[in-house]
Every structure is written in structure tokens, then in C-alpha cells.
Design a protein around this nucleic acid. Structure first.
Lengths: 329, 329
DNA sequence: TGAGACAATGAAAGCGATTGCATGATTCTG
DNA sequence: CAGAATCATGCAATCGCTTTCATTGTCTCA
């Protein structure tokens, strides 16, 4: 027998399809005995409403798209999970798309998702503002970690946490710093760099800028190598993953951390706690970030064309073992 | 103006909707000038076919579901990426669902996905065989890392690689081993344990079994603590994540690796290379695993009810720094 | 007791695409 | 040159569901 539909159920129950539909969507409109019979038959037949048919008439896909630049960067799985949980709470599923660090892919995927989702969350987009705006035209959209005036955004602001990080290093006697810049297309990278520059200027300490490096472990190793070419005693890595690369490179060269150099990361991914030495970093409120993004998106979906919302959540500095007193060498 | 449909395009081009539809799906059936005009108008209007409408009539969602037990376990992002790439090649999108290590959630999600996808890939399922079979009834389904006679499966067989791992340790003089078992519901865990037991018996060495432990960093720390209660000089962790936990715990207790104890992981996630010491482990062919799973699934979708396929891909042992000569203490 | 009010249900019109069949215009073919 | 084959296109049914509107009883209240 073919897939059960509301009609097969209706026939078996001696009611009309409309009643079956209502039994599911507006149960209070159906008398108790009929409703129960419908439910029983539905369960027996293993009925599942066709979301295509429903979507066709309601115009809702009950699905949101999520575009991440690199799912293998450990920051994103946490985010994905948070977003998925939040989406589930509002009855939606998540379609995940990995843009594999390509700005072009981001835009392409937004276009592809258009017809299949109610809205999209684009995490840490690499694409140009105009391309992004264009791609999202008429599609509810929330940007994560990148503000754009006319699109909603939820961002993690690490500025003050990075100040704390700097102060923490300063107190440990460091006076010469390196900034290991992240991907040049990344707003987060620019923002973090800016915060660190401002802090350094405020403190009047020396800041060597290196990079940009890719936000990968390998990129981190390169950054580590570059760091060794300077006399900075403390370095700000773009994120935890690159920081881990730096640690690995330094370890490989026999440079002790935090003995000879201190390193701070950003994001506080699982990795940060597992490396040796554990990473001093800035904890991003992943759960909140995801939940907020979904909320904002769902508001955009409810009221398309509504004013864009901009939410900013602060990161929190956390000191671990990759930072310590400046060596007197 | 509202969303463009084939009708709005048809009207603007002075043709029927059928022709527009054909222009997209069977362009060879439409004369060149008409086709080009349709394409031009479609592009101008930013037309995107409604996948709900299409899905309703074709019965295809062009979407596959992917259920993973724990997206924050670094093994899975790699797999997700591989699967997504493969799916994209066959024109499908991927709906990711994180079951958060709950067997019940797995089954629940399979049921939910039913109506929205053409088939599902269930990675490393925790649920019982019968529940799984029941949930997948009539739904094309491929199991990853868990064989079940009547459902297709793609598994990574680490048996021989684990033998290699054992031999590697044996050559380094180890004679007393610990098996840090993974989740009891995990087929992979059972399978790995079995391989190790067999190897140990074959070699005639002592094997202490500990656990089960959860496949998380924390679970690994517990495993590490348990390990210290034994006199095993070498330990097989369930996977890299737990192995990292073990390393952290040992480091925390001042036990040197590989000086005092050797540890081997499994999966070869990014983490394995980034921890210190880098992890001796078994590399899983993630890319192949994902690509194969998608292929098998798409065959199941083409020919529903076809015979289940079973593919097994071997893991490869790789020695790094977490294993070394047995200490003479 | 009769007129609303109300509750439960059905009939039917879409939602936006695909697709089998019918049609009319061309082009072959012998 | 008549009839067949071919090509490009349109018509209309269909997919499974939601939802508006109409219908039929049942109550309730004056």
C-alpha cells in the first residue's frame, strides 16, 4: 500500500479530509471521539503529514538554513547545536551548509536555500556586504558575527574581554605583543584586531602585526613560525584553533609556553581546554548566540520587512595556562 | 509584488506554465528563442522554483537527513562535511540533526525526518536494532558504523589497525594493557573492544578492562583516573576525544606520556594532531565513509526495497607521540 | 416554541509545480 | 502531393494539505 494521506485516514474513519487535517492542526475544533479515532488510525497507519504539501499551502517550510564557513572549526559545532536546539523549540529544522571558507559559496548557498527555507542564519560571513545584501534580498536573514546596517545581526563582542586579556598579560610583565591576524575577509578578525590595537595604544606597548593567517590549525602553525621571528613575548591569536597551531609550532621549536611566550586565543572551544598548556582565551556565549539568532530570525520571518535588529553579546576573558609571567631572558 | 512563479513568468513571456516548467527541466523540448526569453525573464524576476510544489508532485525532496550522535565530537564535523559534499554532487541538501547522544532522540528524529527527506544516514546509532529497524521501515536508510542485517551500512573497520596499534605497543615493550571502553550502546565501541581483546589474547598479554566511559573529553578524564588505578603501561582509548581526556588527566596528575604510560586513540580527528603529545591513533577514512554512505543511500532511494548493501572500509594505524617505550620503572 | 448562537463537519478552492495527452504547424517520405 | 512523423506548445489533472464558507444539528433563552 502507498503512503498514508489524510484521505486514506479520512476514508477509514468515515470523515472528510478536512476533519483529519483539523484533528492535527486545530484539535479543539474536532469532537473528542472523532479526534481520538483519527489519531488512532493515523498512528496505526504510520501517517506523517507531507511537509511538501503543507509547505505548499502554508508557504512555510518550517526550516531554517544555516551557513557556516567551516564546520571543522570547532567553534561552529557548538553553535550549530545551539541553533538547532533553538530551532527545534520553535518547530523548525535546520539545514546546515558548510561554505568551506569560500565567500562565493556563501552567496551561492543563500540563493539555493531561498526556496527551501523560511530564513537563513549566516555565520561569520566572508562575502562582501553588497553581495550579502543582494543574496538576502527578500529572504529573512540573520548575520552572525558581522553587522550590516540593513540586515539583522547577532554578534559576539570581544572588545572588553580582549582588553582584559591584554591587562592580564600586562600585569604579568609583558610589554611587547604580537597580533596574529585572522582571515582578512572576516569581520570578527578585523574587529578583534582593532580592539587589540586600541588596547595596545592605550597601554603604550609595542604591537607587531603579523598575518593574515587562515583560521585553521595550519594557519596557526604559520603564525607561530612568524611569531618566532619577532621578539614579542605575548601573542593574540585570532581564535583558539590558530592559537593551538601556534602552541604546536612553538612546542615543535622547543619554545616553552608560557615560559618563553604567552599565547591567548579566542572563542573557548573544547580544544582550548584540552591542549597543553590549556589555552587562555575569551569565552564566546555560544548558546546565547545561537538562541538569539534564532529568535531574531523568527521575528524576521513573522514580520518580513521589519526593521533589522542588532544584538551584541559580550565574550568573557578566561585565564588558563598558556599565559604567564614574562620570562626574564 | 509577490514571489514569482512559473505563471508570472509564463504570462510575461506569452507562453503557458508548462512551457516554463519544461524550459527548466527538459530544455531540449523548448525552442531556443522561447527558452532564452524564459530564462531571461526568470533571472530578471529572481525566480526560484518552489521546492515544496516540486516535491509534492515529484515525490522527491532532494534532501537527505543526517543524524549524528554528537556534533561537538570532532569526528563528526569531518564526516558531515564529506557527506554534504557528496550529497551536493547528487543535487541534494543535507538536513543535520544532532541526537545529543540520546538513543531515543535518534529514533524520534528518524520519524520526524521521514516526511521531509528522501532518505537518512544515521551515524553511529545508539538505539537498539529493533527500534532502528522499526523507525526506518519504508525509509531509505544507511547506517554508519553499525551493521544491521536488513539495513544498509557503511562501517569503518578498525580491527586490523588496532592489531597494528597493539603490535606497535608490544614492540615498545608493553605487556600490560588497559582497555578504556566507550559507550556501551555503541557498536563501534563493542567492535573495537572486541578487536583489542582478540589481539591481547593472541599476544598473551594482560588486558584490564575499564569503563564504559562516555565519548567525551570528560569521559576521557574519568578514564584517565581509572587508568591510574591500574598498572597497565599502555591504554587503548575508545576514540581520540576520550584519549585527549586521558592525556589531560594524566598530565594533571603529573604522569608523563609516553614516558610512564602510552595512550592510543581512534579516529584521527584534528585534535589528535594538536594535543601534546600528539596522539597515536587510527585514521578513519572520513571522506570515503561519507561519500560511500551517500552513494549507497542514493541507490536505496532509486530502488526502494532493494537489497541492503554493506560496505566496510579499513582504518589505518598511525604512530605519533603518545606512545613510546615502556618505562623501566 | 421559535430564533439565534454555537459546535461539528463537509465541500471545494487553491498552493506551484510536473507531466501525459492533445493539438496544430512543419517537415519528411515515397 | 497525401499522409506520416516530428516538433513545439497548450490543456488539464494531479500531488497532499490547509482553510474559507456553507451546512446541519443541538442548545439556549425569552
Amino acid at each position: 500500500m502507498s503512503k498514508p494521506t489524510i484521505y486514506s485516514i479520512a476514508r477509514r474513519c468515515g470523515v472528510s479530509a478536512a476533519t483529519v487535517s483539523r484533528a492535527f492542526n486545530r484539535p479543539e475544533l474536532v469532537s473528542a471521539p472523532v479526534r481520538e479515532q483519527i489519531m488512532a488510525v493515523a498512528a496505526e497507519l504510520g501517517y506523517q503529514p507531507s511537509s511538501a504539501a503543507r509547505g505548499l499551502v502554508t508557504g512555510r517550510a518550517e526550516m531554517i538554513g544555516l551557513i557556516v564557513p567551516d564546520i571543522t572549526n570547532p567553534f561552529f559545532p557548538q553553535l550549530v547545536r545551539a541553533i538547532q536546539q533553538a530551532a527545534e523549540r520553535m518547530g523548525s529544522s535546520v539545514m546546515l551548509v558548510d561554505a568551506e571558507e569560500s565567500a562565493a559559496a556563501e552567496v551561492r548557498h543563500v540563493a539555493q536555500l531561498r526556496s527551501r527555507v523560511d530564513g537563513v542564519i549566516v555565520a561569520s560571513p566572508r562575502s562582501s556586504s553588497s553581495a550579502l545584501r543582494e543574496a538576502a534580498r527578500g529572504l529573512p536573514c540573520v548575520l552572525l558575527n558581522r553587522p550590516l546596517r540593513d540586515l539583522s545581526s547577532v554578534i559576539c563582542d570581544n572588545t572588553s574581554a580582549l582588553f582584559d586579556a591584554g591587562d592580564h598579560l600586562y600585569k604579568h610583565g609583558h610589554r611587547s605583543f604580537a597580533l596574529l591576524a585572522g582571515p582578512s575577509a572576516s569581520w570578527a578578525a578585523a574587529r578583534r584586531a582593532q580592539a587589540i590595537r586600541r588596547w595596545a595604544r592605550g597601554r603604550g606597548v609595542e604591537l607587531t602585526e603579523l598575518g593574515p593567517f587562515r583560521a585553521t590549525f595550519k594557519g596557526g602553525r604559520q603564525a607561530g613560525a612568524a611569531l618566532l621571528g619577532t621578539d614579542a613575548t605575548a601573542a593574540f591569536a585570532f581564535d583558539d584553533l590558530t592559537a593551538c597551531g601556534v602552541l604546536a609550532e612553538l612546542a615543535g621549536c622547543g619554545v616553552s609556553v608560557p615560559g618563553e611566550r604567552s599565547v591567548v586565543g579566542c572563542d573557548d572551544v573544547l580544544l582550548a581546554r584540552t591542549v597543553t598548556p590549556s589555552l587562555t582565551t575569551v569565552t564566546a556565549p555560544t548558546g546565547d548566540l545561537g538562541a538569539t539568532a534564532v529568535q531574531v530570525l523568527s521575528r524576521q520571518i513573522e514580520a518580513p520587512g521589519g526593521a533589522p535588529e542588532h544584538v551584541r553579546l559580550p565574550g568573557v576573558f578566561v585565564a588558563r595556562d598558556s599565559t604567564g609571567p614574562r620570562s626574564d631572558s
